[in-house]
Simulated scan of single mutants.
Amino acid sequence: MNVDWVIPCRYVEVHDNLGSMIGAGIDTFWVPELPAGLQVLCAVRLTATADELTAGTVHQMRNVVTDPAGNVVSDVGGEFEIGTENPRREWLNGIVLPSAVQWEATVTGTYQLEHIVDADSKSIPLHVVEGQPDEAEE
Rank of each mutant, 00 (worst) to 15 (best):
H127D: 10
P32T: 10
P35F: 11
P32V: 08
A136W: 09
P98E: 03
E114Q: 14
S99R: 10
V107T: 14
E114A: 12
T84H: 00
I124Y: 06
G131S: 07
E52H: 08
L46Y: 03
V117T: 11
E79L: 09
N71L: 06
G56P: 03
D134I: 14
E137G: 13
F29I: 15
L46I: 11
T57M: 12
Q112F: 02
P8E: 02
A100E: 09
T110K: 08
A100K: 09
A100C: 03
V101N: 08
P133D: 05
A55R: 13
E52D: 10
K122L: 09
A24T: 10
G77V: 05
G78D: 04
L92C: 01
A55T: 14
Y11A: 12
T57C: 07
H59K: 05
E85T: 06
Q102Y: 11
L41S: 14
V64C: 02
D27V: 04
V6I: 08
R88S: 12
S121C: 06
V40A: 15
H115W: 11
C42L: 15
A48D: 02
I95R: 10
V96L: 13
L53G: 01
Y11D: 13
N93D: 04
L38I: 13
E85C: 03
L92P: 06
T108A: 15
